[in-house]
Design a protein around this nucleic acid. Sequence first.
DNA 1: CTCTTTGTCAACCGCAAGGTTGAATAAGCG
DNA 2: CGCTTATTCAACCTTGCGGTTGACAAAGAG
Lengths: 125, 125
Amino acid sequence: MDEQQLSRTFAALADPTRRDLVARLAVGDATLTELASSYDVSVQAVSKHLKVLEGAGLVRRTKDAQRRPCHLEAEVLDLMTGWIERRRREAEERYQRLDDVLARMAADEAADSDPAPRTREGEAS
Amino acid sequence: MDEQQLSRTFAALADPTRRDLVARLAVGDATLTELASSYDVSVQAVSKHLKVLEGAGLVRRTKDAQRRPCHLEAEVLDLMTGWIERRRREAEERYQRLDDVLARMAADEAADSDPAPRTREGEAS
DNA sequence: CTCTTTGTCAACCGCAAGGTTGAATAAGCG
DNA sequence: CGCTTATTCAACCTTGCGGTTGACAAAGAG
């Protein structure tokens, strides 16, 4: 059910401006106008970006008079790295399994039953 | 300059179907129809998804007769984790710095009754 | 050669993303 | 109080995404 959370977080970081905002906030909190001054888009656009980051749980906006300092909520990033590392590990395991190599050879043999030159099934020439 | 690469990779994984495809391919290579059978969308839609993943460098399609096995290129994932971990570390460092706590206190004080609101570290690094 | 399997290409649709401008709200400042 | 600053809300526009259907290419299988 945190699939949505994952989607939102990945989508949030898919935008270069938003990534830059996160990078900027990783260093220190900042307000909208402070942040917006770094980009050539309107303040409203940056506000929207921040709202997206907020929706992804990556940013929390606190209240201070009429300005609203943004704070990076870095723990959410662990959700992503968790997901990624899992796939990474699975792929690694698979790569190292002997069964896999054998299965690959069998599959090749089934595909074209000739004495094939075995490197990897990849580059067809 | 691999900003684009990052954007493409994050965007690719922002879609739940695509994430599932990656998860599926992390376990083992598969063809289009094999993969498509798991989802309730058309084969063409899945093909598009694979093309996106391919564009992000996450998948490589090899040729085998009329079918095209898909293989996960897991190293690209490291690009993301690299970026993420960097921000994570920066945020962590910042959190642990004493200066930061002091600045926070000063900022709080500034909010209440303040003569010198210039305590925030700007865009130094 | 014909038929079936596997996958791609092309055109189209609905919708949300990212951007704009313009007006509105909220809170310190003179 | 009225003005300025900081932020948001609302309407609108253009693009791209994820999906569809329909036609087409390529390569085994009969």
